[in-house]
Design a protein around this nucleic acid. Structure first.
Length: 284
DNA sequence: ACACGGACCTGAAGGC
DNA sequence: TGCCTTCAGGTCCGTG
């Protein structure tokens, strides 16, 4: 499911019921996620207050009153369900937990937060807040694409000398944090750059970032901002994928290119084991 | 050091 | 209908 816009949307949904609230009761129903749940997971959370719920790349980051930070990742299929407590919840709500409801937080806010993840590629870890930036998942992450730290110079530097495709480079979380297969394809189409192009060719020309690098930075910002806006409008519905009709290239093999005046047909190829969708006519 | 293929899981969708 | 194959938006590890 989740790339940066989806994760950020989840964060915004959880924030009101988590920030400032205590973990009243925690259920670790199935500990064998991609990384096994931390030892004594429920006990270490219970009674602690969530000071702040943030996001870094595709990770949700909850700082706790205990001095530990709860790090969460949705993997491919993870999602959170929020049930606001109320009279009759046992009669009218979900009385039975779903098979893939692996972790349940009962918060002092009254909300019940359920982590569901069929494929179990998701992850929850507890790390010392002081050492958070040293954590291997976070320490290598590239800049946040919607912050100023992400710019053409930085991108050019990150891909300089990289002997790999643009598609692979943008998918690399060390280059930019938060992009996944869909938005990489979408951003490359907006920027009119071929996913097959060598990443280093957008980099620098005698010191200054090349024009393609600038276009790509703008395209990444644009595609993420648009997705975030659409997510907000969808308001919880369609937690999956997003509307295929709004994609420019993703999952549109054989369909016409949506760029004005472009006669191209969207092609699907496989790069590094994953589908890439692009227009061979207008992406160079 | 880097880049790639495969592995990790389950479920949905398509072909026959 | 049902079985089989393929594919899925993420990451990590081993190999070359």
């Amino acid at each position: 499911m989740p790339e940066l816009p989806e994760v950020e949307t989840v964060r915004r949904a959880l924030q009101p019921v988590m920030e400032g609230a205590r973990f009243h009761k925690v259920l670790a129903r199935r500990p064998d996620l991609r990384v096994p749940l931390p030892r004594r997971f429920a006990a270490r959370l219970s009674g602690e207050t969530v000071l702040r719920l943030g996001r870094r790349g595709k990770y949700l980051v909850a700082d706790l009153s205990s001095g530990e930070t709860l790090l969460m990742h949705l993997g491919m299929s993870g999602s959170f369900r929020i049930d606001l407590a109320g009279p009759g919840v046992f009669h009218h709500g979900r009385a039975t937990a779903g098979v893939h409801d692996h972790v349940v937080f009962h918060m002092s806010s009254g909300a019940t937060i359920t982590f569901n993840d069929p494929r179990r590629f998701g992850l929850m870890e507890l790390v010392s807040t002081d050492a958070l930036q040293l954590h291997r998942a976070l320490s290598l992450l590239g800049p946040e694409p919607l912050e100023d730290t992400f710019n053409a110079a930085r991108l050019a530097e990150a891909v300089r000398g990289r002997k790999t495709s643009l598609k692979a480079a943008l998918s690399d979380q060390r280059v930019i944090a938060g992009l996944g297969n869909i938005y990489v394809c979408e951003a490359l189409h907006i920027a009119r750059l071929s996913p097959l192009r060598a990443a280093s060719t957008i980099a620098t020309r005698n010191g200054a970032p090349r024009e393609p690098a600038r276009r790509l930075v703008d395209a990444v910002r644009k595609v993420l901002t648009q997705a975030l806006t659409r997510r907000a409008a969808a308001d919880g519905e369609d937690v999956d994928g997003g509307d295929p009709r709004t994609f420019r290239v993703y999952d549109r093999e054989g369909e016409p290119c949506r760029r004005r005046g472009c006669p191209g047909t969207i092609r699907r190829i496989v790069q590094a084991g994953r589908s890439t969708f692009y227009c061979p006519i207008c992406q160079r």
